[in-house]
Amino acid sequence: MAAGTGSGSTVSAIFSPVRIWLLLPSWVSIGFFLLLPVLLMLVYSFLTKEFRGGVIWEFSLASYDQFLFDRGLFGDAPAVMKWTYINIFIRSILQATGATILCLLIGFPTAYFIATRPIQSRTMWLFLITVPYWVNLLIRTVSMKFLIRDTGPLNELLLNIGLIDAPLHVINTNFAVQLGLFYSYLPFMVLPIYASVERYNFTFSEVASDLYASKITILWSIILPVVKPGIIAGSILVFVPSLGAFLAPDLLGGAKTFMIGSLVEDQFKGNAGNWPFGAAVSMILLSLVLVVLMFYVRAQQRDQT
């Protein structure tokens, strides 16, 4: 509220008579080109797949059925749980979790370090951390692929130094994918934690130290709980995109690391695709993400009461 311009109004309302017109473009464009499509996608997941890759507008639970059950060639056979697709989801969740943990291990100390630098250099550090993010994700993933290939520079270096005898086979493994995801989303972990640590009052640490607490104890019992909101925010910001990621699994992983992103991509390629099934998988992914977000929002609200 502007000083001296009076009491009462806490939110400026100068443009309120025309706000509808100002907001309409964004509402229409996002509502029509995103919200509506998502709803349409929901509808599609309940349609029947057409032979040549399109859809027949006929209601069917075939997609969700296909996701969960294996009915063999004859649709009337009793349902046997098929784990293929569920496994893909579980794997994706595990990969995303792995990436998140990696980001935490490296990101937390980094964020903490930057937040405790003198004020002038802080922006510079943050700038350094975020600049790589602005480089095209595809290029970053490709460069990571190039680096860790069996014949790549990393292995070359390690072989030359003599640290290893045979090339580290990193590419096409789960770890490679997690590394790729970690590389893609690290700044998302660093920034929220940085914001939290910056707000932390280090007098608490001084008081604790005065009362004989060791630095480790201070970190674990005092700093971490205070910084928790930043850690959770960062984790969500890494976990959610990792779940639905396509590039890292596709370029850095292999058949054994098949994830949701690739599964969905497959359904829309040419004639072999299954649009309703792809829609169904996307819906399941979206629901998963919404659940995670809801937990987050609830946890935020609980924290504030």
């Binding site: 996002i30 349409l40 969905v264 992914l285």
Partner: peptide, 19 residues
């Protein structure tokens, strides 16, 4: 609504838009 495009996973947006 304004933040929706950031909240929805990119692949979901891609599929929905294509459909």
């Amino acid at each position: 609504l304004i933040s929706l495009p950031i909240m929805v996973p990119e692949i979901v947006t891609a599929v929905a838009t294509l459909i």
